[in-house]
């Protein structure tokens, strides 16, 4: 564990609390892509199958994994049951088959072994790298977003960005090289946030509303 990874994980945690806060205080999930949230559940469940094998890393690791699975499922409940009327599927139109299919193929080509743990792990890494796309697509379609929603996306972007210095740090301080699958997918994932990040820094953090140029 190093400073960058810890900060990244805390940023990831913060993003979930921001999202829960947004849904519960506005009593609405308007502006949140249900499809992205479904993809996160799939990502966490397929990646953390090692929980079932009791291959223990640390209490931190186990608690965080359980939290990510639990909170992501809870968010689906909030969106689909509790605040269902505020969820507008007509603007959440990204076709997630186009993400799930290629990620499944990639995980069959690039993985660390043809086992029931490794293939889903690899799949989850590829899927996470593109899971935000339905959310960004929705933002693009509506052209604007509530400020709290942009804080949520920015916290996710910060989490991904912080994993990059984490890998650089690990490369120089540990002698077990680089996890190519995690790093390549991670860089792709971070790149997807660049456009959003630019508008977030130049508009939202200057006190303006998040609006895309016409």
């Amino acid at each position: 564990m190093n400073f960058f990874r810890l900060l990244g994980d805390l940023s990831h945690l913060a993003s979930i609390f921001i999202l829960l806060h947004k849904i519960q205080t506005t009593r609405s999930c308007r502006g949140i892509s249900f499809k992205t949230q479904v993809l996160y559940v799939v990502v966490f469940v397929t990646r953390y199958l090692d929980l079932l094998t009791f291959q223990f890393h640390s209490i931190y690791n186990t608690v965080m994994k359980l939290f990510f699975i639990g909170s992501s499922i809870y968010i689906l409940y909030l969106m689909r049951v509790r605040f269902r009327p505020t969820n507008d599927p007509s603007i959440d139109t990204f076709r997630i088959e186009y993400l799930l299919g290629p990620c499944a193929v990639l995980s069959l080509i690039f993985n660390y072994g043809y086992t029931w743990l490794e293939i889903p792990w690899s799949f989850s890494i590829f899927l996470e790298s593109v899971a935000i796309l339905p959310q960004l697509f929705m933002l693009q379609r509506t052209g604007e977003a509530e400020t709290i929603t942009t804080h949520y996306i920015a916290a996710l972007g910060a989490y991904r960005a912080l994993y990059i210095p984490n890998w650089i740090f690990r490369y120089f301080t540990e002698d077990n090289g680089v996890d190519a699958i995690a790093v390549v997918a991670g860089i792709v994932q971070t790149a997807l946030y660049v456009d959003f990040g630019w508008i977030y820094f130049t508009k939202v953090l200057q006190g303006q509303k998040f609006e895309l140029p016409a």
């Binding site: 090692d50 660390y112 690990r170 996890d179 699958i181 995690a182 790093v183």
Partner: peptide, 10 residues
């Protein structure tokens, strides 16, 4: 050679 240190990350 592929390294799997991503496994201890979240």
């Amino acid at each position: 050679e592929a390294k799997e240190n991503g496994k201890d990350e979240l």
